[in-house]
């Protein structure tokens, strides 16, 4: 089985921080799996995802993403960055631009430098953007400005932008924590479904165990920068989840089930 990402003995501390955000993390992510990163706030989920996206430097250990080793001191070459897509918790959209323009922003890394600068997509780019919009159920919003949309619609735009990159690995940082439970289920179903349909690997973080169970085949528990458990979803015990969140700040939608 091929691997989407391999992490070996990874440690990382944010600049000026005493505590390490990640401590001797080792992980293998096989291609095509939907995996959830579960853990309380400050566990290191965001750090791990940003690091896999090539946005953090100064770590120690060995990390390779989609077959290419990451350099601990330099961001990855721009040409391979579209291969890894990222969905941000706070959407990270250009509010004053239209939905279509935001989705086309996902194509910028695939365009020639001049086309990217001028913002003039090819027919192929437009086709991919339109398909991504349709897959996310927002084809009719293409010409709306993002600042006129609801939270759920915004996250759909962000996912469409990520899909427009044609990524082979999709990283999503708390993609549903700003949404109500119904929307959260819809968005995660969309994200994991789109990844599966494209043969892409999806790694999403969450602090809601019930959502992780519903949408991931495998769940990795992380706390204090260390991996606490790494199991197929069917083998995850309630005790393990409860232990993961012991003494942690209660989170909305955490699910009392796991505690009682």
């Amino acid at each position: 089985m091929s691997t989407a990402a391999r992490i070996d003995d990874l440690s990382f501390a944010h600049q000026g921080a005493d505590l390490r955000a990640l401590e001797r993390v080792s992980l293998v992510i096989p291609t095509g799996e939907n995996i959830a990163l579960l853990g309380p706030s400050g566990a290191g989920k965001t750090t791990l995802l940003a690091l896999l996206d090539g946005r953090l430097q100064g770590w120690r250990g060995r990390v390779s993403v989609l077959g290419a080793p990451l350099d601990p001191d330099h961001p990855p070459p721009r040409a391979i960055r579209p291969e890894t897509g990222f969905v941000f918790q706070e959407f990270a959209l250009v509010e004053r631009s239209t939905v279509l323009r935001n989705v086309l922003n996902g194509r910028l890394g695939r365009m020639s430098p001049l086309r990217a600068l001028l913002g003039s997509p090819t027919k192929h780019d437009l086709e991919i953007a339109r398909t991504a919009l349709a897959d996310c159920g927002i084809a009719d919003l293409a010409d709306r400005r993002v600042d006129s949309l609801s939270g759920g619609q915004r996250q759909r735009v962000a996912i469409a932008r990520c899909l427009a990159q044609e990524p082979r690995l999709i990283l999503a940082d708390e993609p549903v924590s700003n949404l109500d439970p119904t929307r959260a289920g819809e968005i995660l179903s969309l994200l994991t479904g789109a990844a599966r349909a494209r043969g892409a690997t999806a790694l999403f973080s969450s602090h809601q165990p019930d959502l992780a169970r519903r949408f991931a085949q495998r769940i990795i528990g992380i706390r204090g920068g260390r991996i606490v458990f790494d199991v197929p979803t069917s083998e995850l015990s309630e005790d393990a989840t409860a232990e993961l969140y012991r003494d942690a700040e209660p989170m909305p939608g955490l699910g009392l089930r796991a505690v009682s």
């Binding site: 996206d53 090539g54 946005r55 961001p75 721009r78 040409a79 391979i80 960055r81 579209p82 890894t84 897509g85 990222f86 941000f88 706070e90 959407f91 990270a92 959209l93 250009v94 922003n105 996902g106 194509r107 910028l108 890394g109 695939r110 430098p113 990217a116 600068l117 962000a158 932008r161 990159q165």
Partner: peptide
């Protein structure tokens, strides 16, 4: 800053 990080992640250079 968030949309800037998003475009960086998509492979866009500084001027883009």
């Amino acid at each position: 800053r968030a949309p800037i990080a998003a475009l960086e992640s998509a492979g866009a250079g500084p001027l883009v």
